[in-house]
Each structure stands twice: as structure tokens, then as C-alpha cells.
Simulated assay, not measured.
Amino acid sequence: MKIEIWSDFVCPFCYIGKRRLEQALEQFPHREDVEVVFRSFELDPNAKKETPLTIHELIAQKYGITVEEAKRANADIGKQAEAVGLTFRFETMKPTNTFDAHRLAHYAKEKGKLNDVVERLFYAYFTESKRISNRDVLFAIAEAAGLDRKEAEAVLDGGRYAEQVREDEAAAARFGVRGVPFFVLNGKYAISGAQPVDVFRRALEKVWEEEQQASPLRPLAGEGGMCADGSCSIG
């Protein structure tokens, strides 16, 4: 089973949804047969790398609410994060542009380190209050995940993987994705938003059961002699 997740590293519900899916996978007996792939989505492609505004002020500005209302909304999101073992530090969060972070994730995918880098990017932004557009921050994340720092520097300095980010975003547009997280299971089923763990678990079970029932071959006769599990039937 393949699960594709469109998400952004400054999206709180993307991190919460990621953790809820992981908790559902822990309860899923076939989790070793599930491939999880993260796809790029920028909530604000025009976001500045640095802004004097706090996350509360940006939210207030975006939704036309007061800063106090934004703080209460963020506090509620923080409680949802705590429920799945995450710590969100809204007071010191550094809103930023995520394009380079997405490019780094694509480089990590090529090197087999995607899940590790994705987790570190989320953690750096929401818990460590790091500016994840800063090159030194990104290089440190790459190095901590076991990637070659010099190669990561060459990737980001040279503009590589920009096309892959745009391809993911174009695919999201074809699916009609307007918000994240957005989960696509086996290219056929969609889950929108950071749904409860039970919703993810039931979806995993449904898709797995359906895929096992779907066989491209129809038997024309009963079973004859065959070999399986290292032995052959006799007689």
C-alpha cells in the first residue's frame, strides 16, 4: 500500500496529521507493507523568509481576527498537538518560506532519508523555533539525518529539485487539493485533514482488504500440484 501525503512544514495540522497516521500504522498489522511518501505543498509560496510579525499576528491578519483570537485558536491547536505527543511553541515560532525545505526533502528522498528529514523539519519549526529557510539550519538537519552536508549545500545553492517541488504542487492542483494535510491511498482514496487515529486505521483496513480481494487473474481450474513455502505437494 502506498500513502502519499501533501503537506507543508509550517502547517500545524500537517504535523498533527502525520503523527496520527503514524499511530494508526502502529495498530495496523501490515504496516511493514505500507510505503509513506511526502509530497510538497506550499501554503504561501510568496511567504518571506523573514518577517517582523509573530505567528499570532500573521494568523490574525490572514483571517481578519484579533491577535487575542488568534492566540486562543493557536492554543487549541497546541492542545491537539500535545494529545499526540507533540510540543508546539507558538510564542517563539519563526514564520518563513518553505520552498528550500521542500527541495531538501526531495534530495533526502533520493538518498533514502525522506521520513527522517521530514520529521526533523517539522520538529525544527514547531518545537525548536528554528527558521527552516535558513541555509545553516537546513544543512544541520541534513547532516543530522545522515546526509552529506557538502552535497546538501550544493543541492540548495544550485537550485536542484525545484522542478520536483513544482511537480508535486501541480499534482495537488489536479487532485483539487486546496488545503493540507491531504492523504492519497493507492492513488484512489483521499483523506483530507488531520483526521482522528481511528479514521486512519479504518481507512488502512478498508484499502488493504479491498486490494487483497482485487486479483488480476481468474482461475480456470482447481489447484493442481504446486510448490510453496519451500516445499511441494505430493500426490
Rank of each mutant, 00 (worst) to 15 (best):
K2V: 12
I3W: 06
V10L: 10
C11A: 05
Y15W: 11
G17P: 00
E22D: 13
E32L: 07
E32F: 07
D33A: 14
D33T: 07
V34N: 06
E35L: 13
E35M: 13
R39Q: 11
E42H: 05
E42N: 07
E42Y: 05
T51H: 08
T51S: 15
P52H: 07
P52G: 10
L53V: 00
L53P: 01
L58C: 02
I59N: 13
A60Q: 02
Q61D: 13
T66V: 08
V67Y: 11
D76L: 15
K79Y: 09
K79I: 04
K79E: 13
T87I: 09
F88W: 07
R89I: 10
P95V: 01
P95F: 05
F99D: 00
R103E: 08
L104H: 10
H106A: 07
E110M: 09
N115P: 09
D116K: 11
L121T: 01
L121F: 12
Y125E: 03
R131W: 06
N134A: 14
N134P: 01
V137Q: 06
I141T: 02
L147G: 10
A152E: 04
A152R: 00
E153T: 08
A154N: 08
L156D: 07
G159M: 02
G159P: 02
R160E: 15
A173C: 00
V177T: 07
P181R: 01
F182L: 08
N186P: 00
I191N: 11
I191A: 14
S192R: 05
S192H: 10
G193Y: 14
P196M: 01
V197A: 09
F200A: 02
E210S: 12
S215R: 10
P216Q: 06
P219W: 15
L220F: 14
A221R: 13
G222Y: 06
C227L: 05
A228D: 09
D229E: 15
S231A: 15
C232Y: 05
I234A: 15
